[in-house]
């Protein structure tokens, strides 16, 4: 088994030809744990995630799934590989009902009715609120409820890897705490997580392995324990992301 289920290998991503957002970035999503990615604004965290999911094509370097090169694989093929994404920007279809949002996620097996119903049921069991609101328009729900719909929708497909980009941006603190608890429990359900986050404290708290990015490059990476215990690393993060991690 490869040591990473999903990997960026020395990847460059450029906009408009020559503005390089990522420069030689390498990143491994290790199986069965939470991998966290932090860094200051503009470090290229979301770009890295988009490159990982085929939404941006690298100009150099490779994307690997289970050690296989899949560079250039379009985003709609990732779900077939058991990899789901909840992006930072809202990914709901506001004028469709909650249930239709869930059904669209079942697109690749839409003719298999039993499987579709199972997936819906899984989402409703995980987040019972969704069942009550299944006929409501997705856009009519609160920010937190929308985030739970996105999570429920991604998990309904039973992915083995879940990529999360700032899951609690613009979400009320109480709901944020709930979301982090939920994400923290995912490896226990056999789901590997990649968490890209601005919320350094929470990201460090629940991650097993951490990457710090700066200016589209790897700054440093290591186990979360090392980050919490090593005063030098702590200061480094404090300096780079302007945030001090409490020991």
């Amino acid at each position: 088994m490869a040591d990473a289920v999903l990997e960026l290998d020395r990847v460059d991503v450029a906009y408009h030809g020559d503005i390089r957002i990522l420069r030689g970035l390498s990143l491994k999503v290790r199986p069965g744990v939470i991998t966290g990615v932090i860094g200051p604004n503009g470090a290229g965290k979301s770009t890295a995630l988009k490159a990982l999911y085929g939404l941006l094509k690298p100009v150099a370097g490779d994307v690997l799934i289970d050690g296989r090169k899949v560079t250039g694989l379009p985003p709609w093929k990732f779900i077939d590989n058991g990899i789901a994404l909840v992006p930072q920007q809202r990914s709901l279809f506001n004028e469709l009902s909650v249930e239709d949002n869930l059904r669209l996620a079942c697109w690749s097996f839409r003719r298999d009715r039993a499987r579709v119903e199972q997936a819906l049921e899984r989402a409703y069991v995980q987040f019972p609120m969704l069942r009550d609101k299944r006929r409501d328009l997705a856009g009519s729900m609160s920010g937190g409820q929308q985030r739970f719909l996105e999570l429920g929708r991604a998990l309904a497909l039973r992915p083995r890897v879940l990529l999360l980009d700032e899951p609690t941006a613009m979400i009320a603190p109480r709901v944020s705490a709930e979301i982090y608890e939920f994400v923290h429990g995912l490896p226990g359900q056999g789901i590997t997580v990649l968490l890209v986050d601005q919320n350094v404290r929470q990201c460090v708290r629940i991650s097993d392995h951490l990457y710090v990015l700066e200016l589209g490059q790897n700054k440093v990476d290591g186990s979360a324990r090392a980050f919490q215990q090593d005063a030098g690393l702590r200061d480094l993060i404090a300096e780079w992301v302007d945030y001090r991690i409490d020991a």
């Binding site: 990914s91 279809f93 506001n94 669209l104």
Partner: peptide, 21 residues
Amino acid sequence: KALRAAIMNPEAIQIMGVDIV
């Protein structure tokens, strides 16, 4: 609905596993 969803949110429809091409 997938067509309408693509109009509402073209990036998200690809994440749903829909071949946008």
